[in-house]
Amino acid sequence: MSEEGTPETAAAPGEKPAEKPVWERDPVVPEWRDADDDPLAAALREALPEAIRSAKTFAGDLTLDVERERLADVARELKTSHGFSLIVDVCGADYPNREPRFDVVVHLASLPPDRAYRVVRLKVQTDEATPVPTLTGVYRGANWPEREVFDMYGVRFEGHPDMTRILLWEGFNGHPLRKEFPVEGIDTGAAIYPEHYGETMGPVAGTGTGWRPPKPAPVAPVGDSADAKPEGPKEGGSA
């Protein structure tokens, strides 16, 4: 956005007096910068030592990497001492090549007229089996976004009052926003009710490409190894 980009680029050295307006020059790609000198990050490090792993800025957004167990503490500190009263969003991200593969990203905002408007981002890393402390005790509005993160990624939130799927139906097997979940979807019938969906049935809802569970090998006469079961379907997440 023109307003965001200009303060950073105006300091570029060796710039001639503006010959071309900023939208006719090449775009200036933002970069990660360290924000350890940011007053907010410093205040948080002082109040909660070891909760903040790192503080960085990208395109003007402050991002704080937080220790997973301290997420609720950091949020509470931001809410009470620094006026970040609005919970903007809780979402997740999946980096399967990294060890704790999931990211849980929380955006908080401080509202005028009490404070200047500012958005801060908290990130924690977790994997499939480790729950993240819930923010519903700090912000009631974190309830549904956390359910959505659970629904889409399988990340549980400890202490959440209603940890169930929100956008997909109960009994759905899989977490769609994981990178290995196919975009076309999975055979939602057989994935939930394998005993009802036999192989003679055609593709059911969710399999736009006609994918269906692979048939097990035919049962050979006695003496052969009967179960030459091919490798399982490429669906994400386990039951």
Binding site: E24, R25, D26, P27, P30, F58, D61, V105, H107, R121
Partner: peptide, 19 residues
């Protein structure tokens, strides 16, 4: 102009934003 000068293929840098 109604379009900023931009590369032919828009590649997102390795970063994240909220807007």
């Amino acid at each position: 102009p109604i379009m900023a000068k931009r590369p032919r293929v828009l590649k997102g840098p390795k970063g994240e934003v909220y807007h």
